[in-house]
Simulated scan of single mutants.
Amino acid sequence: MSKSSYNSRPKYILIPLFGMGLFVVLYILASLNYPGGSWNDVNHKGFSFWNNYLCDLLDKYAINGALNSGRYYARAALGVLCLSLLFLWLNLHKLVTESINTKIMTYSGVLALLTTFFLASNTHDIIVRISGVFGVVAILSLTVEQFKMHYIKLGLLGVTCIVIFLINYYVYETGFYLKCLPIIQKFTFAAFMVWFSILNAMLYCKSDKV
């Protein structure tokens, strides 16, 4: 790979990668400013990595009843993440062969991300279910395309993400091993962000300056 070829690639393609990094930074700030309380211990001081959900940081009031000053960071993080992944999803068709399935992948992914914007509203459970349905369709469609393009390892990573997501959703809906859900949720986020980061890197490597 020549240096000129590397320099010719548009850097804006890496917006999702930078957005995911900023999401992590903002969520750390949100957790540091969270007053306290979790579903296992209302009186716990500050944010508990093991017992608090990421969504707890979005609420106006913390679980202990105090005003949550960390919500501004968390809501900014959510907006940054959704916008970054929206940009990524609108460009993922460039990595696969155009087909009806590709269109389904794009539209369902966009709808999932647009729905997720409203996660900080008072309709949290409904938003999770709606965005979850669109998200599963989008992810399954993308994974199918990856296997069709012989991206076997990437496809297997996609399958892993889907399985983890479904476990997360099953626990959320049934309450089975609910105490483990905060950790499962964070592990789910981490797995998807690794997958998306690889996809963004691939998109960047295949991009050319127009």
Rank of each mutant, 00 (worst) to 15 (best):
S2T: 14
S2G: 15
S2D: 14
K3C: 10
S5A: 13
S8R: 10
R9P: 03
P10V: 14
Y12Q: 11
I13A: 00
L14Q: 02
I15T: 07
I15W: 01
I15K: 04
P16W: 06
V25C: 11
L29R: 13
L29C: 12
A30S: 07
S31Y: 00
N33K: 14
Y34D: 00
Y34P: 07
N40E: 11
D41K: 10
V42L: 11
V42C: 10
V42T: 13
V42I: 12
N43K: 13
H44E: 15
H44D: 15
F47Y: 14
F49H: 09
W50Y: 10
N52H: 08
D56N: 04
D59P: 00
D59F: 07
Y61G: 08
A62Q: 01
I63N: 10
G65R: 06
N68W: 03
R71P: 07
R71N: 13
Y72F: 13
Y73K: 09
A74S: 06
A76F: 15
V80Q: 11
L81N: 05
C82F: 09
L83W: 12
S84W: 01
S84C: 12
L86Q: 08
F87I: 13
W89R: 05
W89L: 06
L90W: 00
L95N: 07
T97G: 05
T97L: 13
E98C: 11
S99G: 02
S99Y: 00
N101A: 12
N101G: 15
N101P: 04
T102R: 07
T102L: 09
K103P: 09
K103D: 10
T106C: 01
G109S: 02
V110N: 02
V110R: 01
L111F: 08
L111A: 11
A112R: 04
L114R: 06
T116P: 00
T116L: 15
F117S: 03
F118G: 07
L119C: 01
L119A: 05
S121K: 01
N122Y: 04
H124S: 00
D125W: 01
I126G: 05
I127L: 00
G132C: 01
G135K: 02
V137N: 00
V137K: 03
A138I: 03
I139C: 09
I139N: 00
L140W: 01
V144G: 00
E145D: 10
Q146W: 00
F147K: 05
K148W: 04
M149K: 15
M149E: 15
M149N: 14
M149C: 12
H150I: 13
K153G: 10
G155Q: 05
L157H: 07
G158T: 06
G158Y: 03
C161A: 12
C161V: 08
C161L: 07
I162M: 04
V163H: 06
F165N: 06
N168V: 02
Y169K: 02
Y172N: 10
E173C: 11
G175V: 09
G175R: 01
F176T: 10
L178K: 15
L178T: 13
K179S: 15
K179Q: 14
C180G: 08
P182K: 01
P182Q: 06
I184M: 02
Q185M: 06
Q185Y: 09
Q185W: 12
T188Y: 02
F196S: 04
S197T: 08
S197W: 04
I198H: 05
L199A: 01
L199W: 03
K206F: 11
D208S: 14
K209S: 15
K209D: 15
V210W: 14
